[in-house]
Design a protein around this nucleic acid. Structure first.
Lengths: 137, 137
DNA sequence: GTCGGAGTTGACAATCATTCTCACTTCATC
DNA sequence: GATGAAGTGAGAATGATTGTCAACTCCGAC
């Protein structure tokens, strides 16, 4: 883990416990979306025993702090991924899960104007793009 | 129920049983997203006893046939709504669930160009806009 | 009209992700 | 080293959803 990560952990007033560090390190080690169960299993394989409940709690904290993205698969399972701070969307490969973060003022503008048009306030939006990546074709 | 609905039921090679008709009629009677449990309860209140499993099965069939939209709430619950045939997105009220179907070539173009830029093929996308509707403010 | 079989249903059990509980541990501070 | 707050883990609890299976319904063939 980098010093930045440790600083982040402290900033969010979370004790940098062995378990939390392990989860953050695991998140840093892959680039695509994984379920809490996957991460728990991955930690077990690495010899870092962390309770499942703790994995869930940690991921929730990280998600609240905006340090990870949460998505729902089609069958309702929550999947997590480390992400950059700024607002962005995901282009996800349907077959291998490879993810690209994308952003663009176009959508942002479009959603807010549509919302305004219908009188909706406090607007947020969720956009995911699915496709088959170059390597899986 | 309209004759069109009956025709659809037949078209999709589903027997138009009392239970299926009841679910479809219920879907027709509200415009926002409801969970399977809600629909089951609603049917009970109307005196149309339909088993919960049957409600789930029916909604799944309808969703497969593209006759209803399925969304996931933030806590992973599936919610269903009757929808028009054409591709569109939803502007959903965070507080009361009121939904507006919106569409626009802007997003469609943007997503496909982004995907193309990264070499992704067979692109689809999911976009939901959340906000507070005029009546809930 | 009635027979038979495929499709459908409902009650209930089973599954599975997630959350809750609570006794126990760890850490910082005094 | 005592204290208390934060954190943890094992297992129970929850709750949406799906599976099971015997009973029921529909519908065409006779």
């Amino acid at each position: 883990m980098t010093s930045t990560e440790k600083a982040n952990a402290e900033k969010s007033s979370l004790r940098p416990t062995r378990q939390r560090l392990a989860v953050m390190e695991a998140m840093a080690s892959f680039g695509d979306f994984r379920s809490a169960q996957d991460i728990h299993e991955l930690l077990g394989e690495r010899g870092e025993q962390v309770g499942l409940a703790t994995v869930y709690r940690t991921l929730q904290r990280l998600a609240d702090a905006g340090e990870v993205d949460v998505l729902r698969t089609e069958d309702g399972e929550a999947i997590y991924r480390r992400c950059s701070d700024s607002h962005h969307h995901h282009l996800v490969c349907r077959s291998c899960g490879a993810t690209v973060e994308v952003e663009g003022p176009t959508v942002e503008r479009w959603t807010s104007s549509i919302a305004a048009e219908h009188g909706y306030a406090d607007v947020s939006h969720a956009l995911e793009i699915f496709g088959t990546c170059p390597r899986c074709r």
